[in-house]
Amino acid sequence: MSAVERLLSRAVKEISPGSIVNLGIGLPTQVMHYLPENFDVQIHSENGILGAWKQAEPALMDPFLIDAAGAYVSLREGASLFDSAVSFAMIRRARLDLTMIGAFEVDALGNLANWKIPGKFSPGIGGAMELAQKTKRIVVLTTHTDKHGNPKILKTCRLPLTAKACVSRIISDLAVIDVTPQGLVVREKLTDISNGDLQALTEAELTFETGEAAHEFV
């Protein structure tokens, strides 16, 4: 299993039956493909869909039906379509149970930065501020380090924030980490890595609920 597959197959377990879930651009939108066919969930896509589902077979693919990342989706029975004002009313009125979202940086206080790298790559806010500020539970999906090997899980975010103290849990390719009042707590390790090595790849201080020899991964 690749690092990304490991992350995604763990992330899918975050989704409770009967919930309404938004999946952000990047790693989160891929989580949908790990859901069992008959799983009881309504996927919200901020471009105006409640009840989005996996890509249809080629003959049934609709060019007028995409998710927020541009991927072609289908609709489950009971789906609804609506304009952007209604879509974000749903978000700001906290009708969503869970948002999984990507990050440039996330920190020990649960602050999230994912919209602006000044002068380099500023994709923009999109739905992120409203989702991060108003969804009942925010789970960040991110590689543990950036492509240069630098930590993305920091003591304090340095980039402009998307929202303060909004993140409940971080799932990386290496570990499941909760944001708690006492700081970051490692709940599971997703690969065979020592506590010392995991800490070395993380700028924020970690405490370990798992023992050194814990093998939660399979």
Partner: peptide, 12 residues
């Protein structure tokens, strides 16, 4: 840049 739902609501 605006938050997406804020842009929608400004227009609405």
């Amino acid at each position: 840049f605006h938050p997406q739902g804020i842009l929608a609501e400004k227009i609405r």
